[in-house]
Write a protein that binds this DNA or RNA. Structure first.
Lengths: 95, 95
DNA sequence: GCTAGTAGCTACGAAAAGCGTAGCGCCTAG
DNA sequence: CTAGGCGCTACGCTTTTCGTAGCTACTAGC
């Protein structure tokens, strides 16, 4: 198994990651939107995952200087491309 | 997110699962084949995952009455269909 | 001003998951 | 009868995840 694939798998192999991606594909972009959309995820874990996904280049954290200021996590190209995987999983699960 | 998808994600969201599936797509079917093919996985974890994948209906455990007797974990239909997901992940990782 | 409320987290201790090493029971080949 | 492979399990430790609490910064309403 190629190293890159192992790294990619390592991302998914942590609890809630798939749900967080799903939420973002559904339009979630703010911390509390994720919380609500994902369900029972503890905020500690959500915070951790968001950092990981950002580090992996799937999400971008942006502090928006409005009032009140807010934080948005936006999908990158790469993050969007990963939707194919989530879709494949979803198709499998529903078949 | 539909309940079925959450359950499917729950399977992947455990360490080594993707690698184990990968190994089985490559032809691994015996305990020590998986160990070797996957790499540094501890036997405790491998044993656990194999039970989980069997419970989930992706693998079938068969004790083969030969001499010496051996144990094989064979992909089911469902397990094979999941290859599409692993392939999608792999394509993503390599792009 | 002065609460009350929302957003986006972090702190803390406990539970669960994963790990590393050792070794057992069963078998066969030499 | 010893040596070695197979398919695990036992044990104790580390890392991850969890649940609850609460903090800081800001604003809307009185």
């Amino acid at each position: 198994m190629p190293e890159e694939v192992r790294r990619a798998a390592g991302l998914l192999e942590r609890r809630w990651t798939v749900s967080i991606l799903w939420a973002s594909y559904e339009g979630a972009s703010r911390f509390n939107e994720f919380r609500q959309s994902v369900g029972e995820i503890p905020p500690t874990t959500l915070a951790q995952r968001l950092v990981e996904l950002e580090d992996a280049g799937l999400l971008e954290r942006a502090v928006i200087d409005a009032r009140p200021p807010r934080v948005e996590y936006r999908l990158t190209e790469e993050g969007l491309r990963l939707k194919l995987v989530v879709d494949a999983l979803s198709a499998w699960a529903l078949a």
